[in-house]
Design a protein around this nucleic acid. Structure first.
Length: 460
DNA sequence: AACAACGCCAACCGCGGGAGA
DNA sequence: CTCTCCCGCGGTTGGCGTTGT
């Protein structure tokens, strides 16, 4: 949105009419405390101000924003300059509305990170934390109004899938715990969108990792076998709803199980540490108030709480659980939120034509997808979902495996999307004299997922 | 056409952490 | 060790455009 036209005539002269880069020595050499003496301008930036700032940054790079303010003569505080640059003038910014893939990613990231906008932005090239924040706040309002969960149930369930990795691989758990301990490095669980860490860890430490993907299976379950007891609803419709509500199924598919057994065998861990600080900002709690029967709540509550909830779930009937899902699936649709996912659902509609029996789920042949995952490809981050869908398709069309019990889970095949960190073979971010990105300190970790556009050594 | 509600966006503010004097 | 400065982050506000009534 261009708000330039709304530029009001402020008390300070517009740079257009003033000696813009006055470069006045007085301003340059003025002691810091002069700041208070200068009547700084507020409000929308004018194109001329933008030009001044942009030219300065491109010439000198970014260092001390207060110096920028002084040397350019802009009547803006350094803070404002930094904000303007990082949010609007940065050449790598991606303008326009979020794509559906980006929206999905934001949802997943938020489920994982909470209100860590800056960290989330690290996974969305060209997007700013402010954009993400604005999008999310809008979404929250929308969801509140529509009484829909901010995080689709599959997102909540994916959290449990993460537990599988943790429990199956102590090193992985350790690393994750370390990540969490150090406050949310850009750890990206492989279960969701295929991070290098997840992939590498899983492959190196647990080549035969029994990767029981509860959430994924459950998601599939509810879009397949179990939806046959979703009330009187038309199954096709329910399926479609489910697909909308489960826009991205978990890529880690390695077996099948009956949903009702999934809980009783305790195969899905509830020990996943809460991501990030123990702040109530954690989105998980926003899902659905404090309904212990609600899976969103259940899956995102602290380990201790979830342990007790687990008992509840163990004791509760599958019907009760499914009824819950039914309520979710049949909840009034947020026209905007869900409709934007409709294309995906339609893309997935081929699943409908598959025989969606739980027993029909089977891991695809080991090898190809893994290789594709390990070896960086040129795939864009957001092609991942497409791959997932294809994968799901292949899984659903594979011969039945149908283990009778969760104990019969097959050895894992860890399927993951290309790591965005390596997915692009070409740098898309121009290099500047000075770095203007601010990757999270954890980004520098060699073993961690590192957003590809923070890699240049332009770090200050 | 007028109005209200909503959506989106830009920008500001306060705070905390890190670095350096 | 303390203080100051700077930076970055997250929360919030306010304005404009769009949509619905």
């Amino acid at each position: 949105m261009n708000r330039v036209k709304s530029e009001s005539s402020w008390e300070m002269p517009d740079p257009d009419q003033t000696d813009l880069p006055s470069h006045d020595d007085d301003s340059v050499k003025a002691p810091p405390r002069r700041k208070a003496d200068v009547q700084l301008k507020k409000g929308p930036w004018t194109p001329s101000e933008d030009a001044v700032l942009e030219a300065y940054v491109k010439k000198h790079g970014v260092r001390n924003w207060n110096v920028v303010q002084k040397e350019t003569g802009l009547l803006r505080c350094g803070k404002s300059c930094r904000l303007r640059w990082s949010n609007h003038l940065r050449p790598d910014l991606k303008k326009g509305t979020f794509t559906k893939e980006e929206k999905n990613l934001i949802i997943r990231l938020h489920h994982r990170m909470g209100n860590k906008w800056a960290q989330m932005a690290a996974y969305l090239p060209g997007r700013t934390d402010n954009e993400i924040k604005n999008y999310w706040n809008t979404r929250v309002k929308k969801c509140l109004r529509m009484n829909t969960p901010e995080h689709p149930p599959n997102i909540c369930m994916e959290a449990s899938n993460e537990d599988q990795h943790e429990s199956a691989d102590s090193n992985f758990s350790e690393k994750l715990a370390n990540d969490l301990l150090h406050e949310n490095g850009p750890y990206v669980p492989d279960f969701t969108w295929g991070s290098s860490i997840g992939v590498q860890e899983s492959l190196s430490n647990a080549p035969q990792l029994p990767d029981i993907s509860f959430s994924n299976l459950l998601a599939l379950n509810f879009t397949s076998k179990n939806y046959d007891f979703i009330g009187q609803a038309n199954q096709e419709n329910v399926l479609k709803e489910s697909e909308i509500l489960f826009p991205v199924l978990n890529p880690t598919i390695n077996g099948t199980f009956d949903g009702s057994h999934a809980f009783s065998n305790g195969n899905f861990s509830t020990s996943r540490p809460i991501t990030g600080p123990s702040k109530m900002e954690l989105p998980s709690f926003q899902c659905v108030a404090s309904d212990p029967n609600n899976w969103c709540t259940y899956l995102s509550t602290s380990a201790m709480q979830r342990s007790s909830y687990a008992d509840l779930c163990v004791q509760s009937s599958a019907v009760a659980a499914s009824a819950k899902f039914e309520s979710i699936c049949m909840a009034p649709r947020d026209s905007g939120q869900l409709e934007e996912l409709l294309p995906e659902a339609q893309a997935l509609s081929s699943l409908e034509n598959q025989q969606l029996s739980v027993g029909s789920l089977s891991p695809p042949s080991v090898g190809t997808p893994c290789d594709a995952m390990v070896e960086p490809t040129g795939l864009d981050l957001f092609e991942r979902d497409t791959n997932l869908y294809a994968l799901i398709d292949s899984c659903l069309s594979a011969p039945p495996l149908c283990p009778a019990s969760p104990d019969e889970f097959q050895p894992a095949i860890i399927l993951s999307a290309p790591n965005p960190a390596f997915g692009s073979t070409e740098p898309t971010v121009p290099q500047y004299e000075q770095g203007y990105f601010s990757p999270h300190p954890e980004d520098s970790r060699t073993d961690a997922f590192s957003p590809w556009y923070t890699m240049p050594a332009v770090y200050q």
